[in-house]
């Protein structure tokens, strides 16, 4: 059996694969099956972010051109979808993760630890957890930086972060160096990441309402002496 053709095709080839698929793939799928995946409508049901409105106010002519409907939920949804597509196409996800782990002081650096429910939406299909961080995690990026900062940063990261090793993306801008439709969509997308939390943005050692009681460094030191 263990050296026969049928044994190897059926037991090794099919059964072992199926076993692992059930344990490592199907089980997590079943666990979350009762939680419906949020559609695009669900995601924009709560309205648009202040940053999206800000884009429209800052670049009125360009915004009108790229999103003829103005600041609507429909425009926002299309921007988020397109922004995500660019995030995938440009390989941003090979340099940035989208998950805050409960270890290594990541909650102090980036903000609240990620929860499975945050990923149950169409924009996380396939999920963009990421496996490599050349740049920082982005799942708590919403409102941490201004639109202006992002506009400069995507054009040439060195303009705002002199030691940055992030690539330049001038093709996200039109001839007059205003962000084009892709550029605005990407900024809307990045500014969306984490905007679903009740309180955001989070800055290292500072909550949305100002400094937290103890700075991040103090908490980290305390944790270290506790040996965790």
């Amino acid at each position: 059996m263990f050296e026969s053709k049928a044994g190897i095709i059926l037991i090794a080839g099919l059964f072992m694969f199926a076993l692992a698929f059930v344990v490592m793939g199907l089980l997590p799928w079943l666990i979350y099956l009762d939680k419906p995946e949020q559609t695009m409508e669900d995601l924009v049901a709560g309205g648009v972010t202040a940053e999206f409105v800000d884009l429209a106010e800052r670049f009125p002519a360009q915004f009108k051109e790229h999103f003829p409907d103005g600041v609507t939920r429909g425009s926002y949804a299309s921007a988020l979808e397109r922004g995500r597509d660019i995030y995938v196409a440009e390989g941003c996800w090979h340099c940035h993760s989208q998950q805050v782990r409960p270890v290594s002081n990541e909650d102090l650096r980036f903000g609240p630890v990620s929860h499975a429910r945050e990923y149950h939406n169409v924009l996380q299909r396939p999920v963009l957890f990421g496996t490599r961080r050349v740049g920082p995690d982005l799942i708590r990026e919403a409102a941490r930086r201004s639109n202006d900062w992002h506009v400069a940063h995507f054009f040439d990261p060195v303009l705002v972060s002199p030691t940055s090793v992030m690539p330049t993306y001038p093709w996200l801008y039109d001839d007059e160096d205003y962000p084009n439709r892709d550029g605005m969509s990407l900024i809307a997308y990045v500014q969306w990441l984490g905007s679903w939390l009740p309180e955001y943005p989070y800055f290292q050692g500072e909550g949305p309402m100002g400094p937290t009681e103890r700075s991040g460094d103090e908490v980290a030191l305390a944790r270290e002496s506790e040996g965790s």
Binding site: G25, L27, P28, Y32, H120, Q124, P126
Partner: peptide, 10 residues
């Protein structure tokens, strides 16, 4: 499959 479950599959 979306969300965390798709992470498992990936």
């Amino acid at each position: 499959v979306g969300g965390a479950a798709s992470g498992a599959l990936i």
